[in-house]
Design a protein around this nucleic acid. Structure first.
Length: 600
RNA sequence: GGCCUCGUAGUUCAAUGGAUAGAAUAGAAGUUUCCUAAACUUUAGAUCUAGGUUCGAUUCCUAGCGAGGCUACCA
């Protein structure tokens, strides 16, 4: 329908002013509520071709498209804005094309042509020395949702993560556990493995700070003290032993990482995210190291007097960057080079590699992509850093070491329990078994968090106030879930009453209400919203869209009765409209990784 | 210091350069003999400042003010 209007305008411009503008280059926007019409075309830019004022230009184009297209019934021009009204019959017709009888999921609105592209999306990628927190939730939900969106848009998508299972941070937890742990295990303590290991990471930091304070009191400068604290030196020693595969250190490392993985897996399962392939830094860092040494031979990198290896990026307006320490051990960058190589080996013909990583690492990725390019890999240009903003607390940034974090497990637990309280208050659990009720609470709690984190533009940093729990009313996940439950209830009743959805005589529908027109229009927007969301890697587009759709439905629901409608064809039409709305809500929420209930 | 983001109702978020800047929440006032009131309706409330480009600027450019991030032989 939109295409027909654009085509009509394009033809009008040609016929009236001999101006060439392809239909797909014409921008239509939704007409503002206070004006009559569905689409609005801005005529200001065309006044210079028509040699008339924008209003007259609009009138001329309006007259032309009313006469020459079948869908436009009327128009009005206000200043330079041509408001186009769609005829009622073509709106009903466009719905009948969208509505595919009872097989809703096969509706043409959800069809997307395959792009033939393979895309790898990396997300999560935690360090294995502490449990996941709210920031990881944003990362996981974003990466997972972007994967689903890209898949729905016709791409072959693979979800991966790199597990940062080596490095000084792990050694810190290990060392603290050896020193203070007294053999404590997840079994003996009842703590989840990742939480147990995180506890020793904090313990390390406490001891480290104590030693620094001690050194400073002995007259050593703060800076030097930070470098010389015995416990830090010991951790560094441990990392060297690990790289040398010292059996004792290696066994401890495997044991503690095992605890963490068990904990992470439980958390991922709760979150409803998963991965097609896992990469471990302990596997990739050596590949990276070899490439760095190769690059050194080729003269891409250089060695400093102390033996450390660097890349010079001053030509690019950046700094010099360390790639291998003087003791030969790897840094973050080293392993990332190896990881990228492995990915392009594992996925031949890969069109794009997307890294879902916080915006604090923008510099890192800029440097990484430049290094890959310098090493001569042409695919370097298909790497993309999906950079998202941090989740801040009212007190500022979250810091694991200082304990100012919102723990992922706790938050999910808390939200499910809030959902339970709310549901019980509203007295809506009649007929639920205890298991079904539990399932509902988790679905609602998780829906609330996911929607809360995904409705915001990923690029922007956002605020989370733990004092105010995430809302269940208004622009929230549960609001949309509720709308779906309401429609499900309608559909159950329709089935009981034997309202058929397969033989609707759309041409017999006389008049439809504005609420119904709005819904039809909203449903027709799914495809363009999906495309936009895929192109901009923004689940927020989908969140905004599905919220608007749910709002449109609730207005329709409040104003128009379905089962009291005496015109049976109109009744069928309204049930069909409800059914396709429910399906679209389900699909969109699915893109966000959120499940919707049939009852709540 | 240099580089990169971002400044919109009390608060949390929207707005491919377009009309009288949308929502939600908190505030005020309503709507249950009728399909689920986690809903609906009404109401009040905002573009950091100063310039510039444009028919038109929240959006683009310059300067200032403010917030955050990066600038590690941490990851």
């Amino acid at each position: 329908m939109e295409e027909q209007i654009k085509g009509g305008i394009s033809a009008a411009l040609k016929a009236l002013y001999n101006h060439d503008l392809a239909a797909e280059d014409i921008a239509l926007q939704p007409t503002r509520k206070e004006f009559e019409g569905t689409y609005t075309f801005v005529t200001f830019p065309f006044a210079r071709f028509s040699k008339k004022n924008p209003e007259e230009t609009g009138n001329e184009i309006g007259e032309y498209i009313v006469e020459n297209t079948s869908v436009v019934s009327d128009f009005n021009t206000v200043k330079g804005f041509l408001n186009i009204s769609i005829s009622e019959s073509s709106q009903i017709e466009s719905f009948s094309e969208m509505f595919n009888g009872a097989d809703l999921s096969a509706s043409p609105i959800f069809e997307q042509a395959p792009t033939g592209k393979t895309v790898v999306v990396e997300y999560s990628s935690p360090n294995t020395n502490k449990p996941l927190h709210l920031g990881h939730l944003r990362n996981n939900f974003l990466g997972n949702s972007v994967s689903r969106i890209l898949k729905a848009a016709g791409n072959d998508v693979h979800k991966v993560q790199i597990i940062n299972d080596r490095g000084i941070h792990i050694c810190k937890s290990m060392l603290a556990w050896l020193r203070f742990g007294e053999g404590e295990t997840p079994d003996s303590s009842g703590l989840k493995g990742d939480h147990l290991v995180g506890k020793y990471y904090v313990a390390f930091d406490k001891e480290y700070k104590k030693e620094i304070a001690q050194l400073v009191s002995e007259g050593i400068s703060q800076e030097d003290a930070e470098k010389q604290a015995p416990i830090l030196l010991e951790a560094q020693e441990m990392l060297k032993k690990w790289e040398a595969k010292d059996p004792e250190v290696y066994a401890l490392w495997e044991k503690m990482n095992g605890w963490v993985y068990a904990g992470f897996n439980a958390t991922y399962q709760k979150m409803g995210v998963d991965f097609d392939q896992l990469y471990y830094e302990s596997d990739t860092y050596l590949i990276g190291r070899d490439r760095v040494l190769e690059g050194l031979e080729k003269g891409v990198f250089f060695k400093k007097e102390d033996g450390s290896i660097w890349v010079d990026l001053t030509d690019e307006g950046l700094d010099e960057k360390l790639l291998l320490r003087k003791d030969g051990t790897s840094v973050y960058m080293t392993q990332d080079i190896g990881t990228a190589l492995m990915r392009f080996d594992d996925y031949p013909g890969l069109s794009q590699l997307i890294y879902t990583v916080g915006n604090e690492q923008e510099y890192h990725f800029k440097v990484l992509f430049l290094i890959l390019k310098k090493l001569g890999y042409e695919w370097a240009s298909s790497c993309y850093h999906l950079s998202y903003g941090m989740v801040d607390l009212p007190s500022g940034k979250m810091k694991s070491r200082e304990g100012t974090v919102v723990d992922a497990d706790d938050l999910m637990q808390e939200m499910a329990s809030t959902a339970k309280t709310r549901t019980e208050e509203l007295g809506k659990i009649d007929g639920f078994t205890p298991e079904q009720a539990e399932e509902l609470y988790e679905m609602l709690g998780l829906g609330a968090i996911k929607y809360f984190l995904l409705k915001v533009d990923p690029r922007k940093r956002m605020l989370f106030n733990p004092e105010e729990s995430i809302e269940f009313q208004g622009n929230t996940g549960p609001f949309i879930q509720y709308t779906h439950a309401r429609i499900s209830s309608i559909l159950r009743k329709a089935e009981q009453l034997g309202v058929s959805l397969v033989d609707i005589q759309f041409n017999e529908i006389g008049q439809v209400d504005q609420m119904e027109k709005d819904l039809i229009h909203a449903l027709g927007q799914y495809s363009e919203k999906l495309t936009l969301a895929a192109n901009t890697y923004s689940p927020a587009i989908i969140a905004q869209y599905v919220y608007d759709l749910a709002k449109d439905y609730n207005r329709f629901y409040a104003e128009l009765s379905i089962f009291n409608e005496s015109d049976k064809t109109l009744q069928q039409f309204r049930v069909a409209l409800s059914a396709l709305t429910a399906e679209t809500i389900k699909v969109c929420m699915g893109l966000l990784g959120i499940n919707v209930p049939d009852r709540m």
